[in-house]
Computed example of a mutant assay.
Amino acid sequence: MFLIFIQMKFVLFTLFLCGFILEINGKSSSGAWLPEEKSLVACEGTVARLHCEEGQAIYVTSAIYGRSNRMTCYVGIPKEQTKNTNCATRAESVFQRCEGKSTCNILASSSVFGDPCVGTYKYLDVIYLCEIPSATE
Rank of each mutant, 00 (worst) to 15 (best):
H51V: 10
S30M: 10
Q96P: 00
S110L: 00
N84C: 02
N105R: 13
G45L: 08
Q81C: 04
M8T: 13
T72K: 12
V60T: 11
E37Y: 09
S109N: 08
Y65V: 02
A135V: 15
I77G: 01
E37S: 15
R67E: 00
C98W: 03
D125F: 06
V75D: 15
C87M: 03
C52F: 03
Y74D: 14
T46G: 00
E53I: 02
A91F: 06
I58T: 04
R67M: 01
A63Q: 03
F20S: 10
A32R: 15
A57C: 04
T136L: 13
E23L: 14
M8W: 07
I127K: 15
A48T: 09
K38S: 12
A91Y: 02
R67Y: 02
I106H: 06
Q81H: 06
I6H: 08
E23C: 10
V94N: 04
C18T: 15
S28P: 00
T46P: 00
E80C: 03
C73M: 08
Y65D: 01
V94E: 05
Y65H: 04
G19D: 05
K27M: 10
G66A: 03
A88V: 03
F5L: 13
Q81E: 11
T89S: 07
L15A: 05
S134M: 09
I77V: 13
S29M: 14
A88I: 04
G100R: 12
E37Q: 15
Y65N: 03
C130P: 00
I6A: 11
Y74E: 12
I58K: 04
S109D: 05
S134A: 13
F113Y: 08
N69K: 11
S93K: 14
I6D: 02
C98R: 01
A42I: 07
T14M: 12
Q81R: 15
C52H: 03
V112Y: 06
Y59E: 14
L17Q: 07
E23D: 15
E44K: 09
E131W: 09
V75A: 15
E80R: 14
C117S: 01
E23F: 13
G119R: 08
T136Q: 12
P78L: 02
F16Q: 07
P35M: 09
L22K: 13
V112R: 06
F16M: 11
T82A: 01
L50V: 05
V60E: 05
N105F: 01
S30A: 15
L3K: 15
Y65T: 03
V118N: 08
S93F: 00
C43H: 08
V126W: 02
H51I: 10
S110E: 07
K101Y: 09
P133D: 06
R97F: 01
V94A: 05
I77M: 07
I21E: 00
A63I: 04
K79L: 13
K38T: 08
R70M: 12
C52S: 07
E54A: 12
C18E: 09
I24D: 00
N86S: 07
M8Q: 12
L107V: 02
F5H: 11
S29Q: 11
L12W: 01
R97L: 09
T85E: 05
S134C: 06
S102G: 04
K27T: 14
N86R: 12
G26P: 00
S39V: 06
C104Q: 06
C98M: 06
I6L: 12
G55P: 03
L40A: 13
G31E: 08
S110V: 03
V112M: 03
T103W: 00
F16W: 10
I77R: 10
G26I: 12
R67G: 01
